[in-house]
Design a protein around this nucleic acid. Structure first.
Lengths: 201, 201
DNA sequence: GTTATAACCGTATCTCCGTACGGTTATCTG
DNA sequence: CAGATAACCGTACGGAGATACGGTTATAAC
């Protein structure tokens, strides 16, 4: 509903109708409308994050280069198909409302923080494995990569067809690859076996 | 009002009261509330853009290196002080509502398009002057720079204090400089005299 | 079996807000 | 001065929507 008609079009009554249930039942599960919306926001955030984590796990399992895995993870966030566009619209709507709704803002910042930590961890692990320069600080690098990713997502969202006749597909991969190449400068000596997974104990 | 309490808190009556006028008078100038909000959005977009244009004009007047000027222009967009944060909040609120308000969406995309064109023009002019490699395509480069800028703005907005104890001031300039350095690789041979200004006839 | 808890419904209430409207005062214009 | 246009006011109307509420049916527990 949000992705199709925006947050303002979402009323408790309409939500109930769309779900094929009564207003009373919705109230049974969510005491207030805000509670309901918060749940929805958490839901999409979690779904998006789950996809990223899946990519990371797969990458680790197949012992693929960290840079390659991160390229996939970051591409996953770009609204390149209708499904991701829908999610992106929802996230964007909530982000706008989060301005004076601390609970929503917290979900937003938390999601961003986790993503940044994932990237920072990938960079950190890349150092151990030899893909990343020994002296590079993972945190600034992660902020930069996260920024590029989110900024790129915005560009793609606004002009899915691409700008000035050049399709987005011509932009996304090259830019992400270039940014990743600036961080992951080396070859993997011995695979550390964890890509962006948590630092092992 | 928007930046302090969000778009939802903006009612015609409250707006009138804040402006020290009557509801009737507001209606005299804006036929509908939507019209009023659209005007507000256009207003902030124009104000933000005006600052960027001013920077460009100043840069041209003093014949400063294009890369340097663009660094300033891009920094101008980052919500580094409370004034810019307020503007950023407003823009973000509108962007969220723009999902099912085509008129608002148009303002948003238009602003983005103009910015991208400014950047592309700067790159183009940089080629003539010698700051940019002859074979670089300005458009993809502009998309990339715009993406970095907007993404960085988001990171700064979400965590103004900086992440993990590292202040944002340590991030912004280095990242922007690095990105610009990737595009503006050369020295200016002879000053073209127009930085990001329109191609002369 | 009875009692409690969860699932479920429909409506009534109360508040808020956008806009319509009828009216008044000021500022031009000729 | 006439008379038109713009600036300006306060209220009334109408709709929409969030929540409260009183109630019913099912499922569980003992």
């Amino acid at each position: 509903m949000i992705s199709e008609h925006g947050l303002d079009a979402v009323t408790v009554a309409r939500t109930a109708a769309t779900a094929g249930m009564s207003v009373g039942l919705v109230q049974h599960y969510f005491r207030t409308k805000d509670e309901m919306l918060l749940h929805a926001f958490r839901e999409v955030s979690a779904r998006i994050r789950a996809r990223a984590e899946q990519r990371i796990r797969d990458g680790v399992r197949h012992e693929r280069p960290i840079a390659r895995v991160m390229a996939e993870v970051m591409t996953e966030y770009i609204p390149l198909d209708e499904a991701r566009r829908a999610e992106y619209r929802v996230a964007r709507a909530f982000a706008g409302r989060a301005l004076d709704a601390p609970a929503l803002a917290e979900v937003d910042t938390e999601a961003a923080r986790r993503l940044r930590e994932d990237i920072a961890r990938a960079v950190h692990n890349g150092k151990e494995c030899g893909e990343v320069d020994e002296h590079l600080d993972p945190l600034p690098a992660a902020v930069r990569l996260a920024a590029v990713m989110e900024g790129l997502a915005l560009q793609v969202y606004r002009e899915p067809e691409g700008a000035a006749g050049v399709p987005v597909t011509r932009f996304v991969a090259p830019v992400l690859d270039a940014e990743l190449a600036a961080v992951f400068t080396g070859e993997c000596r011995q695979y550390a076996g964890r890509a962006a997974s948590p630092r092992s104990p």
